[in-house]
Design a protein around this nucleic acid. Structure first.
Lengths: 414, 414
DNA sequence: CTCTTTTTTTCGAGCCTCAAAAAAAATCAT
DNA sequence: ATGATTTTTTTTGAGGCTCGAAAAAAAGAG
């Protein structure tokens, strides 16, 4: 039941558009913004003048040796001090938090190793609260206030990005992180799936390649996916969705970490490759964790010669290929980014993956499907998390109707 | 690169909102529209007064015995003569066209049996042009003009809804129906996948059940799917997408009509059930067509006792269940409508389907997943097609900025 | 120093939405 | 019947927003 457009929405949306144009295009001039948004020069002038007055934007008077004649364009830039956000990443045995300024630069950072699989529920929650608190404390000194906290976590969140419903990193379920952190710090919080944040980050890193439609697949202990379709992050109807790793590859097949059988992950996750490479039964219990070095060693063995190791990677590629084929049957092929330790062994996976895709509906253009690899997922997740938090701030600074100046003036006053 | 909101967009969008509110809610009063859209009474009053002046809407002065005190609400209704559209449905060996008035009522209808599988490309195109021409001719007499043609067809279209890329009903591919029909009739044309139109129709028929997220599955000779996610028709990045029937059930499994192996359809399409029921090899060639009566007879046999027929339906259910499980892994569970002749045998399919789903990631809430059945797909497809054409008209009557009155006045003048 | 070019700001006109007031159209009570 | 009451719809005036045109600003070119 869509709602009518109120008169004041107009300004709000166009303000958002100007801010996002500045965030996206680096340092555009007013004229460039007018061109990309299709709004008139007068409108852009008025809006950017407001935003500068509110200390959201600033004129970047860099000494641009303009080769052109005429009045030189003045570049607009985000004001780094307009806001600060916190990006928290929780993954297997690892917790990190970063404080990010409005331009996306890291102000402070903190890492901790945890035994997430065996920690108590309260302990895990407390650790997250602590690490955020520590970041905030350090900021307190500089006088800036955090306006938004984004928590990226391996696992399934609800569609409202408030609750961690399920995660492989701890047996505890339904942890309402958003409520817990909001109660503690009084700052709006969102909880997002890590792979969704990877996709978000890829779009910022390489908008040429990752624009309207693409897929980011995490090959790690488990298999995760983040997907952007028609320019929007794809989520499930109730949860963060996109559980590519738990699509069924072979009905009643190998045992998956999730307790079911035949999932793609049960053939292509680290533990599955490990299990197959060591000749263990497909029904045997998945290993709890395998360190990256061991996986690297496995890949090295597979590269040395044909044997069970190479076969394990071949099997993984096949599972991924058929899974992608099924996915492409639904959404059509799109560029794929392969992220995580598995990307370091993508040379071993790719041949059987492509062969499998070619045997599916998505394989009609299998030659044109392109894969990019990025072995380290952590920076991606943190970047995506930060950008997610920042774009939320972008849309909150020009506030819900009533006092758009108030909230931003507070930020500006700092 | 989203574009700013111009000042004149505002009116245009709010007009669209009012029209869609009237189409959706039957005969709402101005007050009700103000409530559902969130716009003020004055705005609704102004817009509806315009629309009535342009003969798009009309006041429905039905003798409503208002029980309430106060000035009675006057219901607004669509003006049936505001526009007329054509809904054309092309399926296996069957072509139909209907002329629909602005309220969605059928004005004229025409059916033809064709041998689509063996017709020449030009012949097939000519038949479609003919049947539309015939409908238009008949209308010419009544003086009304068709403003939009929508063609629903089994198969894959491009994302722009202009070209039939591939279809099982004829070996010919890449037929640019939209261009062909537009060239002939000078009326805007869209070409849509039949299952997408089924989904569209279900939303109009039963908005209570089919609202934001649901799936319509066609069980027929092949397997088709239309899906609405977050209130929007889900399409692929390049094509109409949603080729559920060609998700992989068993890698390198049974032979599918599409030439590949192991697709869901190769286990659950009519030809697959037939093949399994008759003990034919999974690698044997799919039958070209099986009449509904034969399928009904097969279902009757299956109901009589345990045998190869019942087993064939069991296998079909299992393929559908694992397929839905994989789908639900991506999008989370949602209500499902089972449409087509297969829905008449859903009692035979459901047990194994549910058992399979329960063994997948989507099966977490398998008990709460609900299925509706509707054995006759044709009326649904026609309805969806009509509504699709009409909603396009809804959004074209308040035109692209310049002369919104012109086009609608033409319609009104008729 | 003046002319040209390009960017940015200013200004007035034209719409649009909104809130409040007024008008309209019915029922209820006497 | 008639006036009071209630509810819906229209009218009116104010305030905002965007736009195009004109003016101002800020450079290089000659």
């Amino acid at each position: 039941m869509s709602v009518g457009i109120r008169h004041d929405d107009l300004r709000r949306r166009n303000r958002a558009m100007v801010i996002s144009a500045v965030r996206r295009d680096g340092q555009p001039s007013r004229t460039e913004i007018a061109a990309t948004t299709g709004l008139s020069h007068s409108t852009i002038s008025a809006i950017s003048s407001d935003l500068i007055g509110e200390c959201v934007l600033m004129e970047a008077r860099g000494e641009t040796t303009s080769l052109k004649r005429g009045r030189p364009q003045v570049a607009l830039a985000l004001n780094p001090d307009a806001a600060v956000v916190a990006a928290v990443v929780l993954s297997l045995n690892f917790l990190s938090a970063a404080i990010i300024d409005y331009t996306g630069h890291v102000v402070a950072e903190e890492h901790r190793r945890l035994d997430t699989q065996h920690m108590g529920r309260e302990d895990l929650i407390q650790q997250c609260i602590d690490i955020v608190g520590q970041g905030l404390d350090r900021l307190q000194l500089s006088g800036r206030r955090v306006l938004r906290i984004a928590l990226a976590v391996q696992g399934i969140t609800d569609a409202q990005a408030r609750i961690l419903l399920w995660t492989p990193i701890t047996p505890h379920t339904d942890i309402p992180f958003a409520d817990l952190l909001e109660a503690r710090f009084g700052i709006p919080v969102i909880v997002e799936n890590d792979c969704n944040m990877m996709a978000e980050a890829l779009r910022w890193r390489n908008p040429e390649r990752y624009r309207e439609d693409f897929i980011a697949i995490l090959l790690s202990h488990g298999i995760g996916m983040g997907m952007i379709l028609k320019g929007e992050l794809f989520t499930g109807t109730h949860s963060s969705g996109g559980e590519f790793g738990h699509m069924i590859h072979k009905p009643d097949g190998a045992r998956c970490r999730c307790g079911r059988r035949g999932c793609v992950e049960a053939y292509a996750g680290n533990y599955a490759i490990w299990r197959n490479a060591h000749g263990l039964a497909e029904s045997s219990e998945p290993a709890a964790n395998i360190v990256d070095d061991d996986m690297q060693a496995l890949a090295a063995l597979a590269r040395e010669g044909d044997g069970p190791e190479r076969e394990a990677y071949r099997t993984a590629g096949e599972a991924l290929g058929f899974g992608l084929g099924s996915l492409f049957a639904l959404i059509d092929p799109a560029p794929v980014a392969v992220v995580g330790i598995g990307a370091a062994a993508f040379d071993l996976i790719e041949p059987s993956l492509r062969a499998a895709i070619a045997r599916t509906a998505g394989g009609q253009h299998s030659g044109s499907i392109s894969f990019d690899t990025e072995p380290d997922e952590r920076p991606l997740i943190r970047e995506g998390c930060a950008m997610r938090a920042l774009t939320f701030v972008d849309q909150e600074i020009f506030a819900p109707g009533s006092q758009p100046q108030e909230s931003s003036r507070q930020a500006a006053a700092i």
